[in-house]
Design a protein around this nucleic acid. Structure first.
Length: 467
RNA sequence: GGCGACGUACCCAAGUUGGUAAGGGACGGCUCUGCAAAAGCCUUAUUCCUCGGUUCGAGUCCGAGCGUCGCCUCCA
């Protein structure tokens, strides 16, 4: 069964297969700059990439998945007047830049875990790969693709004919009305490879280089780390849609000029999460994080399911109502799949195999998660043996990652034993009242419990309760 | 100014090479229940932003328009 992905490079869906010389998919995903918490829009992209990796594995590939952590500060503009994001983060939090990087890296990894995103095979930090970056710049310099200005070493995009191809750029018109500050750059599309430290200023992060004390440019780290860990040609490179224009275009330029080889065979880009009509952005200050969602009573996996209900290449509108939909939907899925836990058996009926095939086709068709979820829901309604349903749920969850059909750890909230005692006392009183058919009394107790945010359920085997 | 995306029921959202609108949530109805809750069943777009065109047939192709948004500065 073929696996198809929409390749930004060709603007069309292409069948994905491995080169004959390889046995592993080499996949590089652009990670975060750790100067602030990741917001749920950022995380949408990592969920998409997680589904991508899981889908590759579901279709039988092994994947060498590399994600970078950008822990070095980059200026916010080409000119020297921009602020360094890491230094800004340090000023905001009163920590050193290294502490800021460590703190937000940990926070980021915690988010990944809570969203059930599979750990990459390699996490790599920009500051651990300074020599590789310097080497790559030296390589470009030796081949004549660079020039020097008073503030750094720049890539000369005019030397790379195919520069505009990837993003379909109209280089001439880029200049008109653009917000680019040219500085000493020869062209708007040139970009810094290495920046010199300002003469009278001590930077928190700077390194010795053949060009003097300074720090790497904004795109070089990804090329250097991707090639260091995966070789000169990658199978898949991905990131957010905003990376197409600048970041990935520049990565292609510097990598292909250095090696003379194709940098990546496939390019996949995730579209933005929208909120209130526009994208969610760190610079505007107002943004949502996983921990905020948790404070509002959501399970991170509610958000994961929400992300899965739309296709990764389309905008997704975040509303609280939509997240509540996802929460209800996940609850309902769990009610259906929890009783199947541990009951798995061989999938062999024609119907079950047909459903499994539909799922694989849906997910294999450029990661159509909404359709895959549809297949899951339909399957649960079908007339199948429990052992087949149980196995199909586990099978589908290898891609969906919603922890369905397997035992989960119970909610992290520790309940105070004295409160439990009180609830149980009230329940006992209520059951007495019910035995005596004193309905007004029993309803009164139920209301009291509701005030404590406790919901109860009367079943044939007694009353159960939950928060 | 350049490039690009999107507009499907109350909400989220799919719709492959055009063949007669997935799925989820909410709502409403029914069953069950002392009443609830939970669960089960049923119902919910003659119609896909508008107007033209191609076609036996268009949400799907073409053209025009309206609306929303993104990228072109770091950004997922």
């Amino acid at each position: 069964m073929s696996l198809k992905f929409y390749n930004t490079a060709s603007r069309s869906k292409e069948v994905f297969q491995l080169l004959e010389t390889n046995d592993t998919v080499k996949m590089y995903c652009c990670g975060p700059t750790v100067y602030h918490y990741a917001h749920i829009g950022n995380l949408r992209t990592y969920i998409f990439e997680d589904v991508l990796r899981r889908t590759l594995e579901y279709h039988g590939f092994s994947v060498k998945h590399v994600v970078n952590i950008t822990d070095v500060g980059h200026l916010t503009s080409d000119a020297d007047d921009g602020d360094d994001k890491m230094e800004k983060g340090a000023a905001r939090t009163g920590k050193t830049v290294w502490e800021v990087a460590e703190y937000y890296t940990q926070a980021f990894m915690k988010d990944w875990k809570s969203l059930n995103i599979v750990e990459p095979v390699i996490w790599c930090k920009a500051t651990d790969h300074i020599p590789e970056q310097i080497q790559l710049i030296q390589n470009l310099e030796a081949k004549g693709f660079t020039y020097k200005t008073s503030d750094g070493i720049y890539f000369d995009s005019a030397k790379f004919n195919r520069y505009p191809e990837f993003a379909n750029l109209d280089v001439e018109n880029l200049r008109q009305g653009s917000r680019i500050d040219m500085g000493e750059k020869r062209s708007a599309t040139d970009f810094a490879l290495w920046k010199f430290s300002p003469p009278n200023q001590k930077r928190a992060m700077e390194w010795e280089s053949p060009w003097g004390l300074g720090f790497p440019g904004w795109h070089i780290e990804c090329s250097a780390m991707a090639m260091h860990h995966l070789g000169e040609t990658l199978d898949i490179h991905c990131g957010g849609s905003d990376h197409v224009r600048v970041h990935h275009t520049n990565e292609i330029a510097q990598s292909e000029c250095a090696t003379g080889k194709l940098f990546s065979r496939f390019w996949l880009h995730g579209e933005f999460l929208r909120m209130g009509g526009g994208k969610m952005s760190k610079s505007t200050g107002e943004f949502l994080t996983i921990s905020l969602l948790q404070k509002k009573g959501f399970d991170p996996l509610d958000y994961r399911l929400f992300a899965l209900t739309s296709h990764y290449r389309n905008y997704l509108n975040f509303t609280w109502e939509a997240l509540e939909n996802a929460r209800e939907s996940l609850k309902s899925l769990r009610r259906k799949t929890d009783p199947l836990i541990g009951k798995g058996g061989e999938i062999k009926s024609a119907l079950a195999l047909k459903i499994q095939k539909s799922f694989k086709e849906a997910i294999g068709d450029d990661l159509n998660t909404p359709m895959a979820l549809g297949v899951l829901n339909e399957m649960l309604k079908e007339d199948l043996e429990d052992f087949e349903k149980a196995s199909l749920v586990l099978d589908f969850d290898r891609v969906l990652g919603l922890n369905l059909g397997q035992s989960r750890l119970e909610p992290l909230t520790e309940v105070d034993p004295s409160i439990v005692k009180k609830i149980e006392d009230l329940l006992a009183q209520r059951n007495e009242a019910r035995k005596a058919k004193n309905w007004s009394e029993s309803d009164k107790i139920r209301d009291e419990l509701l005030k404590m945010k406790v919901t109860i359920q009367d079943g044939p085997n007694g009353t159960s309760w939950s928060f």
